[in-house]
Each structure stands twice: as structure tokens, then as C-alpha cells.
Amino acid sequence: MNLNMLFTLLRKEFLLEFRQRYAISGIVLYVFSMVFVVYISSVRVQPPVWNVLFWLIVLFASINAVVKSFVQESGARQLYYYQLADPATLLLAKIIYNTLLLLVLSSLAFGAYSVVAGNPVKDPGLFALVLLLGSLGFSIAFTFIASIAAKANNSATLMAILSFPVVLPILLTLVRLSQIALRVIQDTSYQRDIINLLAIDAILITLTFVLFPFIWKD
């Protein structure tokens, strides 16, 4: 793995996204539609419910944003990458790219949802950190699952059923942390939850790098 290759691959991801602007626009529109649908069906809600609804929006938007990262590239192009780059670098580039993408999407979702449904966040610093950690965790888990699901014919269904149970520990910790940021629950020792979350991320990313070469070979 070398940095040069990583930057080239990252640049490729951004370029690809820029050239296929309809894909990213689709996801952004998806986020706005979802925020709107959730808002219309619940209008103004109490902070605990706001928290849950917000994370549901982010979860579904993330799945839809990440699933395309392997599906959109055809088998022939995968073969081409396989000859040029090593799988670990390719995967790392995808994870970094998806983390940034999810960070942007969840910030957009937060902006849109707080405009229509109010902003109950009391600790913006912690909430921003939770969004960042959430994007990182979702990106690791979903990118890996997407690489498995992309091999099958029913990849959209597979993506959902394979990733929901795996991502649940991350989601539960995120919801808990953001409840603290919303002052829905009081907990001064939330550092432990952040460490838990980072530990889960560490387990997942290690496994991802060990296992990805087996998915890659076809």
C-alpha cells in the first residue's frame, strides 16, 4: 500500500462522482424527501423522538449512498483495478471517500431536519463528534457489506439484510451518545461510550482488511 496510489484512487472516486452528478444529486434528493416525509408524518416532536427519527434518516440515507460504491462499477472495470491496485488500498480509498460522503449527507440531513422540525441539540460539539463517529462507523460497515452484496443479483435486498444486524451496536451507541448531546439523558462518563464505539470500529476495520482480499478475487 502506498500513499500515492491511495491519493490517485481517492481522486478517482471524486472525479467519478463529479462526472456522474445525477447519482449524488439523487442521494441528496433522497435525504431531503425523507426528511420531508418524516416531518409531515410527525410534525414537531419531543427531543427523544427527534433523535430516533434523525438517526433513522441518516441510517437509510447512508445505506443508499454506500450501496452504489461497488454496484456502479462493472465487472470489467473491477478487473482493471485489480491489475493496477492492491485491494487494501482500494478499500481504504473507498472507506475514506464514503466517510466524507456520509459526513456531508448527515450534516445536510441535520440542517434540513432542524429547519423544519426544530433543533433540540444542546451540546453542538459533542453532536458534531457523534456525527463524525457515526459517518466513520457506517462507512466501514456499509462499504464492506456493499462489496459482498455487489457480487449477488439481489444486491439492494442483500445490502439491507446483511448490514442492519451488523451495524446495530454502532447505531445503539450513536443514539445513546446523541441523547446525551440533546440532554435527553444525563451522563458525564460518555467518554466510555466513545471508546466503545472506537473499539467496535477498530474490530470492523481490522476484519475488513483481513477479509477483503477474499471478496476481491473472482
Binding site: 444486524p165 451488523v166 451496536p169 466503545n196 467496535i200 474490530i203 470492523l204 476484519l207 477479509l211 477474499f214
Partner: peptide
């Protein structure tokens, strides 16, 4: 078989936080 084996290893590892970390919270 190969992709299921990969998922099995991945899922088992995420079972550890599910069964031993999350219930503590």
C-alpha cells in the same frame, strides 16, 4: 460459499460487541 464464509467471520466478530459490550450499557 466463499462470500458466505467472509460474512460469517465478519458477523461473528460483530456478535462480540452485540453480546458483550452493548448489554453493559
Amino acid at each position: 460459499a466463499r462470500l458466505a464464509a467472509v460474512y460469517n467471520v465478519f458477523a461473528f466478530a460483530s456478535l462480540i460487541p452485540l453480546l458483550y459490550i452493548v448489554p453493559r450499557m
